[in-house]
Every structure is written in structure tokens, then in C-alpha cells.
Computed example of a mutant assay.
Amino acid sequence: MHLPAHVAAYVRRLDRYPAYVYDLRGLSAHAAAIRAALGPVELFYAAKANPDPEILRTLEPHVDGLEVSSGGELAHVRETLPNVRLAYGGPGKSDDEIALAMRLAVERIHVESPNEPARLAELASGRPVDVLLRANLAIALPGAALTMSGPFGMDEDTLDACAHEIARTPGIRLRGVHAHLASGLDAPTMLDLAGQVTDWALPWLAARGVRRPEVNVGGGMAVDYRSPEARFDWTAYGRGLPRDGTVRLRIEPGRAVTAYHGWYVTDVLDVKTTHGETYAILRGGTHHLRTPVTKGHDQPFAVPASSGPPAGRATLVGQLCTPKDVFARHVTVPALRPGDVVAFGMAGAYAWNISHHDFLMHPKPTFHHLR
């Protein structure tokens, strides 16, 4: 894949591998373009995608707030960005986490269970709590890379019961619904999904006396690791979302915001051929960059110092004692030698922060932020 010139220049100066390199300049421009495309739609960044403090600070001017999904994320984000608006979601919230959300002035809590409102009221100690009910709607989602079913949110019967419980619970104010149903969808599919969610949500909320309803349609915008130059069509998506002021609409993307602006950079330790297949063994491994194992793809990469034609095919692996430690299988590469540098792109989301860092106790990567 293409390596931007300013990233390539920085990568060549590194004296230690592995390293994560975050292109904050590119990230800021990308986030600004998303913000401009959305118009009045609220943009909250899903911190779970990458909570690196410098990533969060870079995004702050371009987003309306952040979504967090644990007490740890909540404390980290509030410390990093003391004044940012916060929404807190996720199943299985503990009492300690709910109490922390009260102390740290979370703006919206996404209720995932009919058992949560009573706990919220008790832990809020008389303070008002504004909530969105997370809906697990039975909507067909062809082509989704991941569907958020099972423990996430409530079906329509349970939503009704939960709304009735809230109506009887002083201090808990129903503001709207949250419906993040799937990930990996293109703009037309996301627009269709948003339309189905709002068509259901607005009359449902009106029937329960909710004025100025809020609808959060989540994230899940497609990121295609097989086509690293492709991008979700934010312009078409923003143009197609409701803009009539009858609903306060919010989205919560994560991966599609930061994925393109992170690089995992490492060097070749050995090259060998076994049973006719060539392997390039790289320093580090998928304990640092778990994304290709998790999603079952070849991680896009560039070889910064190579300008010659492809020399053949190889499988790029790490140092771990498992055959699953694979970045990319049977990919076209230049003539790799020990000491050559490989930069894996699209490593700005669900990469370092979801990886099993301490397996085999190899040294951790360094982190670099390009401004």
C-alpha cells in the first residue's frame, strides 16, 4: 500500500523496532472532512477503537463528544480531555462504573438491560440521569462484517418494559434510543439502516412522551483492509441522513476514523524457505498487531526502502511460538533481507489496544506521533 512521504521519511529515521507511528496530521484532516460531511449530525468518536491520548487530543476539535464502554475508558478519557462530552455504553456495567459515570458527569448513559434503571437511580443519589435505550432490533443486515446481537441491547418487548420502568423511576429521563446493530457496512447500506432505525424509533419515542427525541445509530462504517486506498463515502452518507431538525441524530464511528493513520513498523530478522514456501520473520508480531488474526485478512503493508520490482511471494510472520502469528500470507514482496523495514498500514484502530501484549514477554513497541 502507499506510504505517505512524511511517514516514510520518519520511518527511515527510526533506530528501534517495532514501533507504532501515528500520523496525526493525516488524522486531523480526515476527521475534519468527516465533520464537514455530516452537517448537523452529532459525531461522537468511539474511544474503544484507539484511546491513545494524542489520538484523542487530535480528534477533540472535530468531534462533538466521545463514547466510552468501561470505567477504565471513562477515567482515561476524562483525564485526557477534561471538558469533552461523554456517552457511556456497553453491557454489564458494574456499580462502581455507574457511580464513576455519575461523578465524572457523563452526558448520556446507554441502558442495555431492564435491570439498569433502578441501579442508576440508586447510585445517582437524586441527581437526574439522561439515558438512551439500546435497541436490539430484528433488522436484516446483509453484508455485515459483524452483527451486534446477543447480549447487546434489548428486543422490542424488553424495550417496552424498560420504558415503563423508567416512567416509574424518579430522576431517570428517557431521551431516545441507541441502535448500533452492525459493522462493516457501506454508505448506502448504512443509510438504509439509519432510515429503518429512525422510522421505528421516532413513533416509538413519541408514544412514550419523549420530546426532541435523540437517535444514535452507532458506527460500523466499512473499512476494507483488502483495498487500503478505499474510503467510506462520508459525503453521500452525510447528505442522506435526516437534516430536518425533528430528531437529534448522532453517530459513533471508531475504526473508520482512525484506522488509516496508524502504522506498525518493524524489521526483518530472517528469511527462509520451508516446504517450498518463503517466510519473512519479523521482529514483534501479532501480540502487537492482532488485527489480521482477529479479522482474518492480510494486513496491508509497504517496504519503505524498496523501489525495485516484486521479487516473489512470501508469508510475513512474527516471533511468536504459534503458527497463527501471521501478518499476511503468500503476498507479493520485494527481495527481503534481514534488516529491511516493513510498515503495516491501517493500524490506527483495534490494533495495539486489542492485542495480547505480554505473550512471550517480548519488548513492547515504541510510540511516535507525527504532527
Rank of each mutant, 00 (worst) to 15 (best):
G171V: 04
V106T: 12
A99M: 03
A163N: 05
A145V: 12
K93F: 01
Y88V: 03
A135Y: 06
E79V: 07
E107R: 15
G90W: 03
P61N: 10
D130Q: 15
M102Y: 04
H62P: 02
D95C: 07
A145S: 15
N136T: 02
A140V: 04
G71F: 13
E73Q: 13
G171W: 13
R108Q: 05
T169C: 10
V63K: 09
Q196V: 06
H164I: 05
V129Q: 03
H76K: 00
V131L: 13
T58K: 04
H178T: 14
H164A: 15
I166L: 09
P114T: 11
M148F: 13
E122Q: 14
H164F: 13
G153I: 04
M148Y: 14
P142K: 06
E116N: 00
G90C: 01
D95T: 08
S125A: 15
S70P: 07
V131S: 11
L123V: 05
P188V: 07
R103K: 13
N50R: 09
P142H: 07
R57F: 11
H62I: 03
G171M: 10
S125G: 12
H178M: 14
L66G: 10
T158C: 01
M102R: 14
P188T: 11
E73W: 06
E156G: 00
L181R: 00
E165I: 10
I166C: 02
A194L: 02
K93D: 10
S149V: 15
M102P: 02
D155G: 14
A167M: 12
L120N: 02
H180I: 00
G71N: 08
D95I: 07
F152G: 00
T58N: 10
N115F: 12
E165G: 14
S113M: 14
M190P: 00
V68P: 01
M102K: 11
L66R: 08
L123T: 09
L141F: 08
V177K: 09
N50M: 12
D64Y: 06
D192V: 05
P114N: 05
M154K: 01
L74H: 05
L141K: 10
V63W: 04
P82Y: 11
H178Y: 11
A124V: 07
E107Q: 14
G171T: 11
A75I: 09
S69T: 15
R103M: 10
R168G: 06
I98V: 12
V68G: 08
V129S: 04
G72L: 14
A105K: 14
G176P: 08
G65S: 02
